[in-house]
Structures are given as structure tokens and as C-alpha cells.
């Protein structure tokens, strides 16, 4: 039988890379906090704040030693709050899977130590086992920065959360500050078009989409 929230025993591992916990520093705002609250009789309305703060980035699913479907748990809670919310979010900023583009050999010449490469987290985490070694190798070979944390999870920008008409609970600017803290770069390369405009506005640096980067190189060739 698949593990559910009732299998959570509170190890706290899911807090470590969770964007909302990192921002709020309150266990209520984590997959563990929600699972334990559900074990103790919480209703979705009781958890509205954390549910609406979650970026659905999928990191918690990867890190949970009990292999609980935590993202599914959160999506269920969101659907009970607002039946269309999950679908509206996905439509506002679809997860762009640019893995194939990232494997284009030309990228090794185009990326360098002055670049900061932002992996699209949802598709990356959905295929983490198969993809993590590739991105880690790309980072080492080009010397670029990347939105990977020590667990080699992709830190989301949170921008995909800003779609029109969505309830916004997480401070995206604060999330981006954490993402870029201590990083030095002259240019940002993104896999998700959703990230492009706001990252450029906040950082004042050029932000290019990976397809534009590769496309321009191919045009030159």
C-alpha cells in the first residue's frame, strides 16, 4: 500500500529544502507540519495558509524517507479549498521541460563561470534520479552557477506562483533573494519563460531563455 500522510513520523527532512519553510521558519509551513496536523484532525481550512504558500515544486517527495506522496497530499488539500486552483496554477505557468535542450553539446561552449543557470524545478524533480548527474556535470564542466542546493535539488524562483488570479502567500522576492544569496554572475539563463521578466527586473542582469541561447548560436553556425 502506498505511504500516506499517516506514515509521517516527523523526521523533518522535508523542511530542509522546502521553499515555504525556509521563508517562514515554522513547521506548520512544511509538508511534515501539514501531514502531522492531518494526523491530528486538521481540516483543509485549518491549513489554508500553508497550502496556499506551497509552490508544489516536488522537493519534499524526493527527500521523504517514507516515500509519502506529499505533493499529492498538498494538491488534495488545495482541491478541497478550491477545486480548480491546481489546474489554474499549472495552466498559468506550465512546467517547461527543457532537459533535452540542456543536453545540447553547444551549451558547453555557451555557458561559463559568469552565468547562473536556473533549472525548471518541477520537471527536474519529477525525473531527479535520471537528471541530477547531467546537471551536476554541466555545472562542473562550464563553471556556471546553478540553482541547486546541497541536496542537489533545484531551488524554485517561486515566480510560477504569480499567475493571474492566484492567491499569493509566499514572498517571491524573498525567495529570489535566497536563491541568489552569495552567488556572483553577469547573466542568468532560465529554462522557464515564466522566470525571465521578473528575474531581469529584480537582478538588473540580462536573463535569456535556454532556447534563445542555443537558437542564437545555431543561427550563427
Amino acid at each position: 500500500m502506498a505511504a500516506t500522510y499517516s506514515n509521517c513520523h516527523g523526521c523533518s527532512l522535508c523542511l530542509l529544502s522546502c521553499p515555504m519553510w525556509l521563508q517562514k521558519r515554522d513547521v506548520t509551513f512544511s509538508a511534515q507540519g501539514m501531514a502531522r496536523a492531518l494526523q491530528n484532525g486538521a481540516q483543509p481550512q485549518d491549513l489554508a495558509e500553508p497550502l496556499l504558500s506551497c509552490l508544489l515544486c516536488g522537493i519534499c517527495d524526493l527527500i521523504c524517507p517514507e516515500k509519502i506522496d506529499l505533493r499529492g497530499m498538498i494538491e488534495n488539500g488545495l482541491r478541497r479549498l478550491d477545486p480548480d486552483l491546481v489546474a489554474r496554477r499549472a495552466a498559468a505557468c506550465p512546467a517547461e521541460d527543457r532537459f533535452d535542450a540542456s543536453r545540447d553539446p553547444v551549451l558547453l561552449q555557451l555557458l561559463g563561470p559568469d552565468d547562473f543557470y536556473v533549472i525548471e524545478p518541477r520537471s527536474f524533480h519529477a525525473h531527479h534520479v535520471e537528471r541530477v548527474a547531467h546537471y551536476e556535470a554541466l555545472r562542473r564542466r562550464t563553471g556556471c552557477g546553478m540553482n541547486l542546493d546541497l541536496h542537489r535539488m533545484a531551488i524554485p524562483t517561486g515566480i510560477e506562483h504569480l499567475g493571474e488570479g492566484q492567491v499569493q502567500k509566499l514572498d517571491v522576492k524573498q525567495q529570489i533573494q535566497w536563491l541568489l544569496k552569495g552567488r556572483t554572475f553577469a547573466r542568468i539563463v532560465v529554462e522557464s519563460r515564466c522566470d525571465q521578466a521578473l528575474l531581469a527586473e529584480i537582478t538588473g542582469k540580462p536573463v535569456v531563455h535556454i532556447s534563445e541561447l542555443i537558437g542564437s548560436e545555431n543561427a550563427h553556425a
Binding site: G10, Q32, R36, A37, D46
Partner: peptide, 10 residues
């Protein structure tokens, strides 16, 4: 509330 204190049960 129980769902808040229960997080810390063990």
C-alpha cells in the same frame, strides 16, 4: 489546538 500540538507528539 490539537492539530497544532500534535505535531510534536514524539
Amino acid at each position: 489546538q490539537r492539530f497544532e500540538t500534535g505535531v510534536y507528539v514524539t
